[in-house]
Simulated scan of single mutants.
Amino acid sequence: MKRVTFFSIFSFVFAFVSIAQDKKEQDKKAIKDMCGCYDITFKYTETFAPEIDYEKKMDYTASALELALPIVDEDDRISIQHLLVVNDTMVIKHWRQDWEYENQKVFYYDKENNWVFKTLPADDVKGQWTQKVFQVDDSPRYSGSATWIHADGKHYWENKTDSPLPRREYTKRSDYNVMLRGNRQEITDYGWVHEQDNDKVIREDGKEDVLLAQEKGWNTYTKVADEKCQLAMDWWKEHSPFWANVRTSWDVIYNRQGDLTLVKAIDKKPLFMHLYPLEKMNADPEKITAVLSKFVADPKTAKSETGK
């Protein structure tokens, strides 16, 4: 009887572990299915504002050709670098997304270029993947943890988290300072969709957040032949060693306790403009770290711009 009981328990545990492993492999496949060459359309429209006198802003639409490359493919971590192809003649390093399994270390955006680093309880992230999104210069944007869902023929991940203003608005608007992003990334038969339900929020110390407006975002990634992105593939072969050094330098900064506040500009130039000359000389991590360190500010005394 004892043998039967032990065998039954062992079989149950083995089956449970197998199911969890199969689920993880499904998750990894969905994440890596976001890699490839894509025609992209970006569409955003404001849908609601609580104040009747709010003037709805113009819709935003754009299109692009983009390559998404897996630059790290490990059991618990997948990193995807996005590269824009402009007019078939120029490549621009775009955003990066890192996916980490059952990850406990996250950064949450607060406001005024400040991120709060936290360690989540292990039970809270069981079976989940953290998506960490980075700017063109590999500085942080936002992160969040959630479970990939595979049901009824659908494969999607969704999360809600705070972020800085999007690039399409941060130089044009000052009427809000935080975007509460509702992100849903779903794999489709033609590629994938990044659906967004965003709140544009006014955040001040000691006060409750104020909702200015809401918007709907629909970014469609339609897979095309890899040959269309050959220019980006060739560009990355040449430039990837430098950006590997940049990531190494950032990792030193990210391995911290407490907040991270970044200066928005030095000598009236944002960080990515300071990295351009270093990229041309393929600078080593020591030189890169020296530049990045100048942009790390004391959150109590940080200004929007220094070194004028």
Results as ranks from 00 to 15, higher is better:
Asp22Arg: 08
Asn103Gly: 11
Val125Gln: 11
Thr47His: 07
Lys43Leu: 03
Tyr156Gly: 03
Glu158Pro: 01
Asp251Met: 08
Lys160Arg: 11
Phe117Cys: 12
His239Gly: 07
Ile31Thr: 11
Ile149His: 03
Asp259Val: 03
Asp124Gln: 14
Gly258Ile: 02
Glu215Lys: 08
Lys93Ala: 10
Tyr156Val: 02
Asp197Met: 01
Glu100Leu: 15
Asp175Ile: 02
Arg3Cys: 14
Gln135Asp: 09
Pro70Ile: 08
Phe242Pro: 00
Val224Gln: 04
Val136Cys: 13
Ser63Arg: 06
Thr5Gln: 13
His194Asn: 09
Thr220Phe: 15
Ala49Asn: 00
Lys287Arg: 12
Val17Ile: 13
Ile187Lys: 10
Gly307Trp: 05
Val17His: 04
Gly307Asp: 01
Asp298His: 05
Leu271Asn: 15
Val91Asn: 11
Val125Ser: 07
Lys105Phe: 09
Thr119Leu: 01
Lys28Asn: 11
Phe48Tyr: 15
Cys229Phe: 01
Trp99Ile: 13
Val193Cys: 10
Phe16Lys: 02
Met281Tyr: 05
Leu212Asn: 01
Gly217His: 00
Lys200Glu: 06
Ser240Asp: 01
Phe16Glu: 10
Lys172Thr: 15
Tyr221Trp: 08
Glu102His: 10
Tyr108Phe: 09
Asp76Thr: 15
Phe10Ile: 14
Lys228Trp: 02
Thr248Asp: 08
Leu69Glu: 14
Glu195Tyr: 13
Tyr142Gly: 09
Tyr176Asp: 10
Ala62Gln: 00
Val116Trp: 00
Glu208Phe: 04
Asn219Thr: 05
Trp99Arg: 07
Asp39Ser: 05
Gln230Glu: 10
Glu25Thr: 14
Lys216Trp: 00
Lys303Trp: 02
Gln104Asp: 01
Val4Arg: 09
Lys207Trp: 07
Glu286Val: 14
Lys56Leu: 06
Trp157Cys: 15
Phe10Pro: 04
Lys223Val: 14
Arg96Tyr: 04
Asp205Gly: 07
Asp59Thr: 04
Leu120His: 03
Lys56Pro: 00
Glu102Gln: 15
Lys216Ala: 13
Thr5His: 08
Glu66Leu: 09
Phe42Cys: 05
Asp27Met: 11
Asp124His: 09
Glu227Met: 08
Ala68Cys: 06
Lys294Leu: 10
Leu211Ala: 06
Asp259Arg: 07
Lys126Leu: 13
Ala64Arg: 12
His194Leu: 11
Gly36Lys: 01
Phe295Pro: 02
Lys268Asn: 11
Ile288Tyr: 04
Ser249Pro: 04
Met1Asn: 15
Lys269Met: 15
Val4Gln: 10
Gly144Phe: 02
Ala30Met: 07
